[in-house]
Nucleic acid binder design. Sequence first.
DNA 1: CCATTAAAGGTGC
DNA 2: GCACCTTTAATGG
Length: 228
Amino acid sequence: MGEVLRGCVLPDTFYPVENLCDYLDFGSQRSYRKGEAVLLPDEVLGKIIFVLSGRLKVSTITPDGREKFIYSAGQYCLMDRLFSFEEDHILIIAVEDSKVCFFTKEQLLMVFKQDEELIIDVLRNFASKVYYFLNQTNELNLYSPSARILRLLYELYKSKGKYKNNTWEINIYLPNKGISEITGLHFVTVSKIFGYLKRQKILKKTKTKIIIYDVERLKSLIDEGITY
DNA sequence: CCATTAAAGGTGC
DNA sequence: GCACCTTTAATGG
């Protein structure tokens, strides 16, 4: 009797392990100010990072020294830094004032002795993350840039869309910059695509929500492609 | 079709 | 007054 789960649409937190909050005494807590680095590139930590509040951003440093976004970690997200890989070039910074709790391998084992169910939660956190990036590689390989952004919007509609006076509303704070980072499109291109979708009266994006007027057009555009 | 660059317009602290 | 995001236009692969 397996359980069928819905995958994450956005690279954010993936699966919050809230129950780990009961065992914070086993780990060590620390606060970070906005902009402060939690993990520097190639730093060996040997601990699990558990986000208690705020938000961390995980990115890689490219060979030309630029930051490439990977995922965002909100409350109760678990980030594995128990193991270190050679030249990972991974940077974790607090994008808000944040509080985190670290667990070493020994501390984690003590927690698991108290609560075996948590092992499954941790596994599920890993599974969610792996599944997301599995899909992400397919997305990058199978679809054109503009199709990826349309598909993202369609997935958001399916998972978060609410029907409201003849339109579908997605309540979400998702700047163009973020969409650009997730889909791999240039931020200027993202802006142009939203301009097109608005002119075509397919959808409109505001600061806190995306309002879809024509779901069918959005869906069909994925295959047709966009002519600006 | 999309990235890049530059420049100007917005917003919020 | 500055940092950060968005838009628009131009150019080129």
